[in-house]
């Protein structure tokens, strides 16, 4: 059984802002981390492997060369392989172009049984890349999986959770799952594995190695949506600013609640 787990490097802090005067983005740091939801995707992959010891797990990501750091984290947590797909021509990719690129990489890896993604990323927050990859590969998908109940040769049974209800679905392989945060506690990268993988070379794939080499299908050229403008969130509100010692503040707060008839 072959499992591919899609992960992403995301900004570690959300303190990126637009300068309202110059329109320039201001960042407070360059720190990047593994998308927290992907930890659950990785853990779900490991849980499948525990039941199927012959399974192999390949972590993949699309991003700049430094995105290798999240692949290393995945390797140290327990994936067998890791592949980075990177190319300058991927710049400016929206959801469609990103999903297409990842689907091309998955086709290159070949004969994949289960593709696993996190529910969403914490930077884009769209939750769309997983289902779009599934569509490009022509395989079914189940979102928000919280438990893998049964793994058979040609199908799996999973429990997933929605706002109002839980569902149990049987889905034919190959398929794609997006993983919701669940009771599984993601493992930490292990020092032992770090030593073991010391000489592991992360495979790097560029556009020229993919089956579809037409650059118009990637990056900005392959993206139907385009960012026309970025701007800071509006804040026209006139705020009453209250300061003082704790007694004053509590008294003021009490007064506001009372005056507005909430008490």
């Amino acid at each position: 059984m072959k499992i591919v787990t899609c992960i992403k490097q995301v900004p570690a802090s959300s303190n990126v802002e637009v300068d309202p005067v110059t329109g320039v983005l201001i960042r407070d740091s360059n720190n990047a981390k593994l998308n927290p939801y992907d930890l659950y995707a990785l853990e779900a992959s490991f849980s499948i492997k525990e039941k199927n010891p012959n399974a192999t797990i390949t972590a993949i990501t699309m991003g700049p060369p430094n995105a290798k750091s999240v692949l290393k984290e995945a390797l140290y947590m327990g994936t067998d392989e890791a592949v980075l797909v990177t190319d300058r021509r991927f710049a400016g990719a929206d959801v469609l172009a990103t999903s297409y690129t990842l689907s091309q990489l998955i086709k290159l890896i070949g004969e994949v049984d289960i593709i696993i993604c996190g529910k969403q990323t914490t930077d884009g927050d769209t939750a769309q890349v997983g289902p779009e990859i599934a569509e490009f590969l022509g395989v079914p998908h189940i979102p928000y999986v919280i438990e893998i109940l049964e793994i058979l040769d040609d199908k799996i049974v999973v429990k997933s959770t929605y706002d109002t209800h839980d569902e149990i679905n049987e889905i034919k392989l190959p398929c794609l799952l997006t993983i919701e945060k669940s009771n599984l506690t993601p493992r930490l990268p292990s020092y032992k594995r770090k030593i073991k993988m010391k000489n592991y070379q992360i495979d790097t794939v560029t556009l020229d190695q993919l089956n579809d080499k037409n650059p118009k299908h990637y990056g900005l050229n392959g993206s139907p949506t385009q960012v026309e403008e970025i701007f800071p969130p509006s804040n026209e509100m006139k705020s009453k600013f209250i300061e003082g010692n704790k007694e004053t503040l509590a008294h003021e707060l009490y007064k506001i609640l009372d005056e507005n008839k909430f008490l």
Binding site: V16, R27, T122, P224, Q226, V227, E228, I230, F231, P233
Partner: peptide
Amino acid sequence: PAFGGNIMAKIHT
């Protein structure tokens, strides 16, 4: 909101 920060983006197709 876009780019994982306190930024809004105007997006068109």
